[in-house]
Simulated scan of single mutants.
Amino acid sequence: MNTVSAQEPGSGAGPLGKVQPRQLIVTVYGLYARDTDGWMSVASLIQLLADLDVEAPTVRSCVSRLKRAGLLEARSVSGAAGYRISSETERILRDGDPRIFAARRATVDEGWVLVVFSVPESERARRHTLRTQLTRLGFGSVTAGVWIAPGHVHDEAESMLARHGLRAYADLFRADYLSAGGGDADELAAKVRSWWDTDRLQRLYVDFLAAHRPMAERIATGAPVTDRQAFTTYIGVLTDWRRLVYLDPGVARELLPGEWSGTHARELFDEMHARLAGPAHRHVERVRGRRHPAGGLSERPSGRS
């Protein structure tokens, strides 16, 4: 996906550090524009970002940069100036939905997928793209040209290589871990810690819990929360969570540190999503000036990122 802290909307810092307004704009578009053909008016976007303490000139500047990057496209609807997400942005958001809202954790016996690649020095830009995309899919580095991920990531990796024109530089293998010690869980867990920085990820999950648990507990006790407060809190939680889950490789729980905070962080996110998504959406609909059906909106968790 912040930020807006869960304790104090608009504070500007989440557990992963200060969130850029551009990241908040992507979160807002991902959550609330896809049910309007990916479009949102500039006026609505400015008002929603004002709720997150982002000033109008900053919003306009960030939107312009997103347009130049090909992530947004200018379009007027019924005389209102606005932007819609590009087809590539729509694909990125759609691909990210399962990871954000229903991430799968691997099992020990499902094996691994290896990407073995070699990109000439003259094509360093392609090498950078390849490494960036592998990281985004949760791959860890075994050596410079050999990257690894849980076996269920195979289809995503194949699709990514084809989409970016990188298939000629990489080979994919399904693999089991073998060693002189028989590949037992303790030995494999040590390897996992060398392929991924699980200690850092653990700290980030702890920080996420510290940042957002106080507000979650307040809400759970029935403290009143307005739709606007729900929106600012939810955008903050989701933006932080979105950035965290792309760092998590999703390896089997048995291969992670014993006191793994990622499990508790997932539970907290799911709880806040269930409680805040509906009223946050009501606030957005009110800002966009659309009639809201009696009884509120359903949450539709699997279709938003």
Rank of each mutant, 00 (worst) to 15 (best):
W196G: 01
G165W: 10
M160K: 05
G181K: 09
A189W: 00
F208E: 00
I148Q: 07
A157I: 04
Q202W: 00
D176S: 14
R193P: 01
Y205D: 01
V153K: 13
T198D: 01
H154S: 10
E187K: 06
V192M: 12
E158V: 04
W195T: 01
L178G: 09
W147H: 14
D207L: 11
P150G: 10
E156Y: 03
E158G: 06
L166C: 12
G181R: 08
L204D: 14
D186S: 13
A175L: 02
T143G: 04
D199Q: 11
A190C: 09
Q202E: 13
E187N: 11
W195N: 00
H164W: 14
W196V: 02
T198F: 01
D184S: 10
D176E: 15
G181E: 08
D155M: 11
T143I: 14
G183W: 01
G183Y: 03
G165Q: 05
W196L: 04
Y177G: 03
Q202M: 11
L204V: 02
D155Y: 08
W147I: 07
L161A: 06
S194R: 13
A144S: 14
Y169L: 12
Y177K: 03
A180L: 13
D155T: 12
D176G: 09
L172E: 03
M160Y: 09
G182P: 03
Y205M: 05
R174D: 07
Y169K: 09
A149P: 06
L188Y: 08
K191S: 06
S179P: 04
H152L: 09
H154K: 13
A144I: 11
G151F: 04
P150L: 08
Y205S: 01
L178D: 01
L188K: 13
L204N: 13
R163D: 15
D186P: 00
S179W: 06
V206A: 10
L188H: 14
L166G: 06
S194I: 04
A168R: 15
D176F: 07
L201N: 02
V192H: 04
G181S: 14
H152E: 11
M160C: 10
R193V: 13
K191G: 02
R167E: 15
R167Y: 00
R203A: 13
R163N: 12
D171Q: 14
L201M: 11
R203K: 12
D176M: 10
S179G: 15
W196E: 03
D199W: 08
G145M: 06
H152C: 01
A168C: 09
M160D: 06
F208D: 00
R200N: 08
P150D: 07
A162V: 08
D199H: 10
R193T: 07
T198N: 01
E187L: 14
D197Y: 02
R193G: 09
L209A: 13
M160W: 09
E156D: 15
L188N: 07
D199R: 15
